[in-house]
Every structure is written in C-alpha cells, then in structure tokens.
Computed example of a mutant assay.
Amino acid sequence: MPHTIKSKKQLLTRVRRIKGQADALERALEQETDCSAVLQQIAAIRGAVNGLMAEVLEGHLREHLDAHDLPLEQRRNDLEQVVKTLRSYLK
C-alpha cells in the first residue's frame, strides 16, 4: 500500500490547511491588507508546502528506496525520479 494512501487523512488535512491559507492570502490582497501581513501569510504558506513536501518525500524515500524486496534497477529508477522532482521543486 503506497505511503500516500496510508497517510491520506493527514496529507489531506495539510492540503486543506494550505488551501485555507491561500484563500486568506487572496482575501488579504483583495482588502489591500498591509504588506507585512501579506508577506507573513506568504511565508506561512511556503512553510506549509515545504512541510507537506518533506512528509511525502520521506514516505516515498522510505517506501521505494529502502525497500530491499524491490529490484536494484527499480530502486535506481525511483531514485532518478526523486532527484528530478527535487531539482524541479528547488528551482
């Protein structure tokens, strides 16, 4: 069972929290809220997304790269996919 299914409830809770933060940011911009409050909201969203990424990435690494029952070639392919995703995320 994939790690995203096992922790589905927790992940969805995080995503919904991020969605709420993005909605709050949109309202703040519409209401012409002070710049410092907008910046703080953006930083909070970034932190929440980073936390979500870390949680999903850790589960992926543990399930796919630490799985001794998977063939070496499959683990190498999974590693390359993770590297590609990280490079894209860190741009």
Rank of each mutant, 00 (worst) to 15 (best):
K84I: 06
V82K: 03
H60L: 04
T13S: 07
R76N: 05
G51Y: 04
K91H: 13
S36M: 15
L90A: 15
H60C: 04
S7M: 02
E30H: 07
E32M: 07
Y89K: 14
H68M: 12
K8D: 13
L39Y: 03
Q74G: 05
S7N: 10
L65A: 04
I5L: 13
E26C: 02
A67N: 15
A67S: 13
L11H: 09
D69N: 15
A22S: 06
L25H: 02
R14Q: 09
A54V: 09
L57R: 08
K84N: 08
L65P: 00
L65K: 00
V56E: 03
R27C: 04
R87F: 04
R75I: 10
E58D: 11
L72P: 06
L57H: 02
L57G: 02
I45C: 05
Q81F: 06
E80L: 05
L39A: 14
K91F: 11
L39K: 05
L79S: 06
P71W: 11
E58A: 09
S7F: 07
D66E: 11
R27D: 08
P2L: 11
T4Q: 05
L72A: 14
Q10S: 06
Q41V: 14
L86E: 02
G20A: 15
E73G: 06
N77W: 02
H3G: 03
R16V: 03
H3P: 02
N77H: 06
Y89L: 09
T33A: 10
A54W: 14
E58S: 10
Q21V: 04
L90H: 14
D69L: 08
E55L: 07
P2I: 10
R14K: 06
M53W: 15
T13H: 03
E73L: 12
K8N: 13
V83I: 11
V49H: 02
A67D: 15
A37P: 06
N77D: 09
E32D: 13
S7P: 00
I45L: 11
I5N: 14
D34M: 05
Q81R: 09
Q40K: 14
Q21H: 07
E26G: 00
E32T: 06
R27K: 14
V49L: 11
